[in-house]
Design a binder for these strands. Structure first.
Length: 952
RNA sequence: GCUCGGGUGGCGGAACAGGUAGACGCGCGGGACUUAAAAUCCCGUUUCCCUAAAGGAAGUACGGGUUCGAUUCCCGUCUCGAGCACCA
């Protein structure tokens, strides 16, 4: 066992750490706390691939570093265990999702253990565990029992709303003290009337305010998956998972009133250290726009049309109004002679699926209603149109069209020949008839009292005038919609609610409401969700969505076994929130938004001490697969021809069969083939040698190979193409971390994943450099251990150079960890080992601290060497050394000397030399003299410790 | 279309704060050890010119600018990626 052999000790130390609980966080501690969290995984049947641990390794390094710095570190792991895949599998096989989930978790655990993570497994949580989801249900009931009080800008018990209603009644939509400006279609009533309402009627009213509420809403219904989907689970009109079509359907649904928190979710972003891009994504998703509402009266009608606009300054540019086809007033205002054509259009537009409407943006359609509105300032008649470019669900479903300054209105006006007027003038002259001028810069023109005002001032002046005339008022709109909180599925948290006359009430029994056993994991014959199959089930039959359990799990880790509350006050006050959260950016508008929402809600109720769950967020980039692709031409009733990539690529590029290939085709009697006959087949990446060479023999024995197939290649080897794409079983490009651990050991895997590049960058998995990391660990080993396994470490005093190497390494590694620049710290270790190897350094004074600073990255080898030096367990419990600047001070520096900005030579000079002395020395130099070519010195630039520039 | 990031050798990527561009690793070339191979070690490796060596020129997507000096700052163009997208 002389050479580095990770297999001989990695398991030993993993067991030792687990047995001695070196990773356990302390509940009580005088130490400062530090909470490092990974986004917990959904345990899929495929197991972990090398992409998953990327973030875990980074957070593990940070956790171990913080422990060495003397912090009490909480670094837990668990499983987001409810979810669709286990259930789909259950439907196909009859296997209970709890069983597959358990198996998958066991597999994940085994894989995670192999990599040597310092998780505190005593705190593991699984969202499908009744002891856990009891509290998910409990939080849901708190949401049900609360409303958002706009006056106090926070959630409160619903009783405070009831108290207000008993005192003052409800003033209808205008009652912003209660509604906060949200539209609720319930007429006003007095306090006395409220008191006389039946219990059911009161309950029905309160549902409009509860933060968890039941309502009839349009949902994204996915027939193929048999469930509704959240907005962020729908991309381009199809489901994100599986790509099934999604329809708009009206259903009774549980929702959470996240919209009440729009403003606070936006504001909170200012106080957290997340990447700019995630913050931007959340801001877009919340979609705040400030503007105002304006009422237009209709010529010859009592009805009024309310529009929302962010550009009230362009009010004088309004030349028509457009209503969404779904707008309730369309039918009322359309005069008889236009009715048939308008209603025909409306029907057609309504029946277009969401998908068509979204993907077919270029096609302009609309219809004139025949009705006119009155311009509130000019009194002119403006035509009212219907158009499907206006969305029913945003604002009021009606727009005041300003074709001069809104490109969509412009396109519509141009298409139908409606008048276009310019009311804002920018710096550049534009032909407003050709293109709209959308920029929010310039001065108002043709706009009566607004003339001459800059856009910003004009907006303010317009809102003021509109409010004074009683036409409308300043208003803020958000794009964010309430979150639908129910799935027509089995494998999720039951919603602890029972019904009385169709109205929901919290269940009376004690939580948890345990998921019942059912005979089949399918909807009933009546189309009810699977839970309706359960015996004597009197509760809600939908279950909670996947994100329920993940919206608060980070709190449970603080006190995972508590039976009397979701976490104790002491634990919550000590741990507060997550200091460092590491995970993928794909959760930007889902989990990361919902978790913030729940945290703010719990904060409002005084249940947690802070209102943001994750102080700092690092997004690890995806590790992509490096798929191997063979080109083949299947010949009907004949064999398949495999074509080496250099030929196929040329063929595809020129759309012309390369001469060599043509000759081969003739040999095989192949005629009439075109580029379109080439099929690109993904094959197992293990069948490729190096980057591009197909291992033909192995390939012939694999299931990919079609019998009788022949290979055509021009060069020595048969080439495949490579494609960078998602790592996935279906592309045969998955690399399993176990295989890497078995071959090179966990430490090599850990360091190699970090060495690949900056943590947040996406990159394809490529093992090309892994040998280098393995060799580095081998060289490190040799500093400590001799050929016969004996320790080489000696107690002699280290030399100045050795100490310099050590201390600059400590300094750089510390800086790099704190900047999450793990790739450069791996380089730094390599440089240190190279230098110490050159110096043949075996000094304890150097090697002991080196093993400590390496231990966050490569804990197994660090522990092994630590122990081989005769030290007591454990390296993980040491203190991260501080570097001593005095070892790093230089007293001279090889100054690069530039002449006119080009480096010509270097001259070694003392660092304390002053510019005048330096100048004298430099000007005397032969090379400098040569380059000056006798020209006079114009300027002499001397930057201490950096550079000298001689200008002639 | 809008917003935000990127573009550096054959490859992954370094370069703190405007100061020696290409650290570290891979790959490749050469050498040592070995009967041989593996492993290990040493030397070289941006491109071009010249070359025994020395030396020189160009060079961080492209074109301009600021500066004694620009991968870094500013303006314009191209391009790749991500997010948003009839959101009024």
């Amino acid at each position: 066992m002389a050479n580095y052999d990770p297999a001989s000790f990695e398991k030993k130390w993993q067991d030792e750490w687990a047995a001695k609980k070196v990773n356990a966080a302390r509940d009580q501690s005088d130490k400062q706390k530090f909470y490092v969290l990974d986004m917990f995984p959904y345990p899929s049947g495929a197991g972990l691939h090398v992409g998953h641990p990327l973030g875990y390794i980074a957070s593990d390094i940070y956790s171990r570093y913080k422990r060495l710095q003397g912090f009490n570190v909480l670094h837990p792991m668990g499983y987001d265990a409810f979810g669709l895949p286990a259930e789909q599998y259950a439907i196909q096989t009859g296997q209970h999702p709890a069983v597959t989930t358990k198996e998958n978790i066991a597999r994940y655990r085994e894989q995670l253990d192999k990599i040597g993570f310092s998780f505190d497994w005593d705190r593991e949580v699984q969202t499908c565990d009744p002891n856990y989801y009891k509290w998910t249900q409990w939080i849901f009931l708190q949401l049900f029992d609360s409303w958002y009080n706009p006056a106090n800008k926070k959630a409160e018990a619903i009783n405070t709303l009831i108290a207000q209603l008993e005192m003052e009644g409800y003033k209808g939509n205008e009652d912003e003290a209660l509604t906060g400006g949200f539209e609720i279609e319930i007429p006003a009533f007095t306090a006395a009337e409220w008191k006389n309402f039946s219990a059911a009627k009161k309950e029905e009213f309160l549902l409009n305010f509860r933060l968890a509420y039941l309502s009839e809403t349009f949902v994204n219904w996915c027939p193929a998956l048999g469930t509704v989907l959240a907005n962020e689970e729908v991309k381009d009109g199809v489901s994100e998972r599986g790509g099934h079509p999604v329809e708009r359907k009206k259903m009774k649904q549980w929702s959470l009133r996240i919209t009440a928190y729009s403003e606070r979710l936006l504001e909170g972003l200012e106080r957290i250290d997340w990447s700019a891009s995630i913050k931007e994504t959340q801001r877009n998703w919340i979609g705040k726009s400030e503007g105002c509402s304006i009422e237009f009266s209709i010529d010859g009608s009592q009805e009024k049309i309310e529009v929302f606009t962010t550009r009230p300054d362009t009010i004088f540019g309004v030349t028509f109004l457009t209503l969404a086809p779904e707008h309730p007033l369309v039918a009322d205002i359309t005069p008889a002679e236009h009715r048939s054509i308008v209603s025909e259009y409306v029907e057609k537009a309504k029946n277009r699926t969401e998908r068509e409407r979204m993907s077919d943006v270029k096609h302009i359609s609309g219809e004139f209603t025949g009705a006119y509105a009155i311009h509130p300032f000019t009194g002119k008649k403006v035509p009212i149109w219907v158009g499907d470019y206006v969305l029913a669900g945003y604002g009021t479903g009606a727009v005041m069209a300003v074709p001069g300054h809104d490109s969509r209105d412009h396109a519509f006006a141009k298409h139908f020949g409606i008048e276009i007027t310019q009311v804002v003038e920018g710096n550049v002259a534009v032909d407003i008839q050709e293109d709209s001028y959308d920029a929010k810069e310039g001065k108002a023109i043709n706009s009566d009292f607004l003339n001459g005002l800059e856009v910003k001032a004009a907006v303010k002046a317009a809102i003021k005038a509109i409010e004074e005339k009683g036409l409308g008022k300043g208003k803020t709109n958000y794009r964010l919609r309430d979150a639908i909180f129910g799935r027509q599925r089995y494998w999720g948290e039951p919603i602890p609610v029972e019904y009385n006359n169709g109205l929901p009430y919290p269940m009376r029994e004690e939580l948890p409401l345990v998921l019942p056993e059912i005979d089949k994991f399918l909807p009933t014959e009546d189309g009810d969700p699977p839970l309706a199959r359960a015996k004597d089930w009197k509760y809600e039959t939908t279950t909670m969505p996947g994100w329920a359990g993940s919206s608060w799990y980070f709190l449970r880790y603080m006190d995972p076994k508590n039976n009397t509350s979701f976490a104790s006050k002491d634990a919550l006050n000590y741990w507060q929130n997550v200091d460092l959260y590491v995970g993928g950016s794909e959760h930007a508008t889902g989990h990361l938004l919902y978790a913030r929402f729940w945290m703010k809600f719990l904060y409002d109720l005084g249940l947690v001490p802070v209102d943001e769950p994750f102080k700092k967020l690092i997004n690890q980039g995806m590790i992509q697969g490096y798929s191997a692709v063979v080109n083949k031409v299947p010949l009907l009733e004949k064999y398949t021809l495999y074509i080496s990539n250099e030929l196929a690529a040329e063929w595809k590029k020129k759309d012309e069969i390369p001469a060599f290939l043509q000759a081969e085709f003739e040999k095989h009697g192949v005629q009439n083939v075109s580029v379109n006959h080439i099929i690109e087949e993904r094959i197992d990446i293990n069948l490729v040698k190096g980057d591009y060479e197909l291992d033909v023999e192995s390939f012939k024995h694999s299931f990919h190979f079609e019998k009788g197939g022949e290979f055509i290649q021009e060069g020595k080897s048969f080439q495949v193409a490579r494609e960078v794409e998602k790592m996935s079983k279906r592309w045969y490009n998955v690399v399993n971390p176990d295989d890497i651990c078995n071959k090179y050991g966990a430490d090599t895997l850990r360091m190699y994943e970090m060495f690949l590049g900056p943590i947040e960058m996406a990159k394809p998995w490529n093992t090309n450099g892994i040998e280098g990391v393995y060799r580095f660990l081998g060289k490190l080993w040799k500093l400590y251990i001799g050929e016969n396994g004996e320790s080489l470490v000696v107690d002699d005093a280290a030399t100045k150079d050795e100490l310099k190497t050590l201390h600059k390494t400590i300094k750089k590694v510390k800086e790099d960890i704190e900047n999450f620049s793990f790739n450069t710290s791996v380089s730094t270790f390599m440089i240190a080992v190279n230098e110490l190897g050159q110096m043949k350094c075996h000094k304890r004074e150097v090697l002991e601290p080196l093993s400590v600073i390496l231990s966050p990255f490569a804990p197994h080898i660090a522990e092994e060497l630590w122990s081989k030096m005769g030290n007591a367990f454990s390296v993980t419990e040491q203190t991260f050394p501080t570097h001593d600047e005095s070892y790093l001070v230089e007293n001279s520096f090889a100054y690069p000397i530039s002449i006119n900005g080009k480096t010509r030579t270097t001259i070694e000079m003392a660092l304390d030399m002053n510019p005048d002395e330096a100048q004298a020395l430099i000007m005397a130099n032969d090379i400098v003299q040569k380059w000056m070519e006798g020209k006079p010195l114009k300027k002499f630039i001397f930057v201490k410790g950096r550079i000298v520039n001689v200008v002639v």
